[in-house]
Design a protein around this nucleic acid. Structure first.
Lengths: 342, 342
DNA sequence: TCGATTTGTGCAAACGTATTTACAAACTCT
DNA sequence: AGAGTTTGTAAATACGTTTGCACAAATCGA
């Protein structure tokens, strides 16, 4: 049988309530009693029962998450791992744990959230991704339950952390311009995603600001897949009048481009310079190493966790949308070779 | 105020205990009552309070995990993500959730586990990695608390899931032999790790079984790092009498080798054939794509979760050590070119 | 038809904690 | 010295469940 607060009380010759107060550092407890009780607690190896505690306090000190649906993509995997690391690290520092559960089906995700919320199993929820008109978000709003979204969302009346993708893309494009390029294309993702739209916007803005005319032909849409890059590459390289550099929506797409280029015998960055987004581990390992915008995935998770716990503790956030800074990591794929050698 | 079992009882005109019995499908409840109560539950949007329930039943339906310490390595990240996916998916299917917490320090990990165990916060614990003489394992054994280890461990009196690394390495080596190689080297990891020793053993066994003499000079130790591969490559390629193929302890190490080879103008697999372990996503993307032993990381997590929940439910495992099957994925890095073209 | 069994439900006691109320003892101040 | 205040502790209650026990009603077997 596990040792309870009563056992400690009995052995210390005090009442259970006194022990409870010692635990919660109640001001009106005598130093002497406190010392003695703590001594006994250590001696008996007492740890308070978390379930009992949260039953009465109505707090679980737990953050809930839904396991994202199987995502075989490299970036997704990396994103997931780093995100969780950020979330859990911060949560633990603040005395919170992270609970993960999986919905059995598409519909099951909402069911899982409902169980967590109504069952009072968690104090708040972190959402890793959201579809348009997400029923989970609707539910959480209706219940007025604390939650935060990592990533972007059409509405801006919910708590979320995100990158400034417009600025990030602006920076990427500016970098290429500063390397002497003025013939720059853009390989985008699915056009319905906010991230695609934002990055496209930043690219356009950078061109405009530098008096470079936008060639609409040089903007290609696709998926977050290698194949997309491959296709984009073959499209661009067959153009009679082609760009000398590309801004690419995601590192994984760039890998498709790289493979295609190497098959055709083109060199990077000599024949084509490349900058992309997310700075996955692989970006550094590829040949040539990729220039990439690091979006701070760990940080995204860390912030989300922090903002959510604050929200749970009743603090009013100054703003709903928090931006995690990005950072351009320059590697060989976008270095102006001539400049290096001259 | 949340709706409780009492509210349902009142509205249904029965006692709380009856409602409770309806929820748990007690046999002695009349179909009529059950129907009516369920109706009311739905109507009121009732969900039972998980904390209260687990307080009395002494079950949490939660599996605990400790967040692994920051692991910047690609493989670690991939391993972590896939593992969690496997664990959580299986757990959810069986009605369990997964709780993650982080120790603040080295010592803090044990503290975190203690809190989970003594605080009765989880029903079992999954360990992702273990050092030799791990105090956490010692603690869990002492408390006789259900847990499972993913990976290998010196002792074999604890529940664990692992790969058959000897056989896996044997298979990798046999594959190279079947491609016509008989001059095969081995790039190992840290010699104190069981995984290194096991894979080395499998390699040796394959050579012996095929009457190939082991060149001790062709076995190199290192780390799970790119640099290790780079060093190994330069060592091997400078040998007057060098191997035509290598078995490599980890894909990440192979990347180091690849980079080195391409710098020196060597071709894979023509000048050197390669097979390694873990089959990370990147293995497929590299040029050339790598042959690799897939160790079934998702499966490892899935099995661990399954065995642990069974153990929790009192089932006696047939054996303590469970082997997850591996699978050789052949790609260009080990294909005998001549054979393909002739 | 009547005792024995089965069936359906309520009552009350737990689970381990936090918290409110109460109260005695020990101070403070004039 | 006595009223008022502060300090330290205990008793009781509540949190939302589950479950053993009790018991009336219904069913059964002869």
């Amino acid at each position: 049988m596990a040792v309870t607060i009563k056992d400690v009380a009995r052995k210390a010759g005090v009442s259970p309530s006194t022990v409870s107060r010692v635990i919660s550092n109640h001001p009106r407890i005598s130093p002497e009693t406190s010392r003695r009780v703590k001594e006994i607690m250590k001696q008996l190896g007492y740890h308070s029962n978390i379930m009992a505690r949260s039953l009465v306090s109505n707090k679980t000190f737990t953050l809930g998450m839904i396991l994202p649906r199987p995502a075989e993509e490299l970036f997704q995997n990396h994103f997931f791992a780093e995100n969780i690391r950020g979330i859990t690290t911060q949560a633990s520092r603040n005395g919170y744990d992270v609970l993960m559960t999986a919905g059995h089906s598409e519909h099951g995700e909402l069911e899982a959230v409902t169980r967590l919320v109504k069952g009072k199993r968690v104090d708040g929820i972190i959402l890793l991704q959201s579809r348009k008109d997400d029923p989970i978000i609707a539910f959480l709003k209706k219940e007025d339950f604390p939650f935060i979204l990592i990533g972007n969302y059409g509405d801006n009346d919910i708590l979320c952390v995100d990158n400034d993708n417009v600025q990030a893309s602006y920076d990427a494009t500016m970098h290429l311009i500063s390397q002497g390029h003025h013939r720059i294309g853009f390989v985008s993702g699915p056009p319905n995603l906010t991230v695609s739209r934002d990055r496209l916007e930043g690219y356009k803005k950078a061109l405009t600001d530098n008096g470079i005319r936008l060639e609409t032909e040089w903007v290609m849409e696709g998926e977050f897949l290698q194949e997309s890059g491959y296709r984009a590459m073959s499209f661009f390289m067959n153009l009679p009048d082609r760009p000398t550099a590309l801004v690419v929506i995601d590192d994984i797409v760039t890998f498709g481009i790289l493979r295609g280029l190497s098959e055709l015998g083109y060199k990077v960055p000599d024949d084509l310079s490349l900058v992309s987004f997310n700075n996955i581990y692989l970006a550094e390992l590829s040949s040539p190493p990729l220039s990439s915008i690091d979006i701070g995935i760990y940080q995204l998770g860390y912030m989300a966790s922090q903002l959510l716990t604050r929200r749970i503790q009743g603090e009013k956030p100054q703003q709903l949308r928090t931006i995690v800074p990005h950072r351009l990591v320059v590697r060989e794929s976008s270095l102006n070779i001539k400049r290096n050698w001259s």
